[in-house]
Computed example of a mutant assay.
Amino acid sequence: MNTLANLRDVASSVPGIRSGVLWRSDAPHEGDVTPEGHEPWPPALVVDLRDDGERSHGHPLASTTTVVAVPVFADAAIQAQAAGGTMRGLYARMLEADAAARFVEAVTLISESDGPALVHCSAGKDRTGVTVALALALIGVERRHIVEDYVLTTEAMPGVIARMSRQFGIGDGAANVAEIPEEVLRAPAYAIEQVLDTWDAHPGGVEAWWTQAGGASAVVTRLKERLLDG
């Protein structure tokens, strides 16, 4: 049965967040069954962080909901990660100015949605992880809860890799999977902690980083109104 392998409502793992507002996942595929426990489906907004190559077949939800492409990188296909890059290097790259502006765009879209917003990349781990972490950090969620949500993706990675194998032709054999660096197959706490450290060390903290990257203070206000429960 085809279904999303890494779908969850952020409220399910982060206390104090309103349910049914922010969802995260791996990439939807043609032929996926409607996931249980996430109603209404499809969400009101889908923010797709993949590059053009990853979206070469279009988006399977484009005919039934609003899908906005916000490619963090121009060439972020899974083959690039499997070619020897490190998680620390990738996450440092995601905080550089051009990628940072894309995260600002993604979080702004989430703040403006009038219904459930789903953010995804291919695995729902790296680009999605930073987007969700940014939204949560901006509204004051404790660091430990941001990390706890991020690392949950490790449990979903076997299913994610199986789905991506079919889409990208990585291959189901152990030899092919073995060529992918081990850390890419997990969501290690140190990766998102590196991002949080960067925001904490920025003069003025994450909100000042957000403003420098082009984010508006009104977006932070809307995020708090939408995401915080009570």
Score class of each variant (00 low, 15 high):
residue 4 L to N: 09
residue 6 N to A: 02
residue 7 L to M: 07
residue 9 D to Y: 09
residue 13 S to L: 13
residue 13 S to E: 12
residue 14 V to G: 00
residue 15 P to L: 06
residue 24 R to L: 05
residue 24 R to Y: 03
residue 26 D to G: 03
residue 38 H to M: 15
residue 39 E to S: 13
residue 39 E to D: 14
residue 43 P to F: 12
residue 44 A to P: 05
residue 47 V to W: 08
residue 47 V to C: 12
residue 47 V to F: 07
residue 48 D to N: 10
residue 52 D to V: 12
residue 54 E to R: 13
residue 57 H to E: 15
residue 58 G to R: 08
residue 64 T to D: 09
residue 66 T to N: 05
residue 74 A to S: 13
residue 76 A to C: 03
residue 76 A to G: 15
residue 80 A to M: 07
residue 81 Q to P: 00
residue 83 A to K: 14
residue 85 G to A: 14
residue 89 G to P: 03
residue 90 L to C: 07
residue 90 L to R: 09
residue 94 M to G: 03
residue 96 E to A: 08
residue 96 E to Y: 04
residue 102 R to I: 02
residue 103 F to M: 07
residue 104 V to T: 09
residue 107 V to N: 08
residue 107 V to K: 05
residue 108 T to I: 08
residue 114 D to H: 07
residue 118 L to T: 02
residue 120 H to Y: 10
residue 121 C to F: 04
residue 128 T to C: 13
residue 128 T to H: 14
residue 130 V to G: 05
residue 131 T to F: 00
residue 143 R to M: 04
residue 143 R to K: 05
residue 145 H to R: 11
residue 145 H to K: 13
residue 146 I to S: 04
residue 147 V to C: 04
residue 151 V to K: 01
residue 160 V to F: 09
residue 162 A to T: 02
residue 164 M to C: 04
residue 165 S to I: 00
residue 169 G to D: 05
residue 183 E to I: 05
residue 185 L to Q: 13
residue 186 R to D: 03
residue 188 P to L: 01
residue 190 Y to M: 10
residue 195 V to T: 13
residue 196 L to S: 01
residue 197 D to A: 10
residue 198 T to I: 00
residue 198 T to K: 12
residue 202 H to V: 01
residue 205 G to R: 06
residue 207 E to F: 09
residue 208 A to F: 07
residue 209 W to M: 07
residue 209 W to T: 07
residue 210 W to C: 11
residue 213 A to H: 02
residue 215 G to L: 04
residue 222 R to M: 12
residue 226 R to T: 05
residue 226 R to K: 05
residue 227 L to I: 06
residue 228 L to I: 13
